[in-house]
Amino acid sequence: MPRASWALITAGFRRYATYRQATFAGTFTNIVFGFLRCYIMLSVAASAGGLLRGYDSAQLVTYVWLGQGMLAVVNMWVPLDIAERVRTGDVVTDLFRPINPLWTYLWTDIGRAGFAMLTRFTVPIAAGLVFFEMHLPRNPLTYALVVLSIVAAAVVGFGGRYLIGLTAFWLLDTRGAVAAWGMLSTVGSGLYFPLTVLPEWLRVVLWVGTPFPSLLQATADIAVGRGDPLLILAGQVFWAVVLLALCGAVQRRATRKLVVQGG
């Protein structure tokens, strides 16, 4: 099994490594949006007297560029093709293979995320470092935690998208579910603005009740040293496990439905 998963990871990595032009185009766009959001956040902080709800300028820079860099890693806007395979019926072959498709998809997606880390993460981060004053954690341990946190974020991103894909077993048209996930994950992850600017009750709902802050905001907060990093990471791992377990349970029901109703 470990051998198979490693093969799947490298396959995912290789597949995305062939999309060179798309990678270039995507990285370019991430950088442009990085500049845009960075100036906007810095200006908001400046007019608020230097701090944007507790984030100083350097912390905001880190938050913005981490967000742009991680966007392609967690890939929350791009649905997995599982929904398409359910629609066409190809999923049947996936389900009756010796490896659970949940793991096949997960490892392949981790491979994809790995490629995104090398390209679409590092280049925008480098741009942020060159053009802005970024907050860099002093404690080496924080860097390790950030890496773990990104891995957890990628798994959460995968779990959410897989779950949305599985709805295709029950919904004829998954676009509604995809759109809802896209919207909630965009705001809830803190991509558009740091979640601290929201009213407290909404913040609590998001952090405690949803996986969305685990996608981006959690990693940013660990990196800039806001909150207890271990607690934040534990939260991400919790959501990663919950989503994967949910994926497994939903998939079992879907398989039963397929067996009973013959698709």
């Binding site: 908001v44 007019s47 608020a48 603005f193 600017v197």
Partner: peptide, 10 residues
């Protein structure tokens, strides 16, 4: 949302 932080923008 960003406007609400300090009651003004730029």
């Amino acid at each position: 949302v960003l406007f609400s932080v300090s009651g003004g923008l730029g």
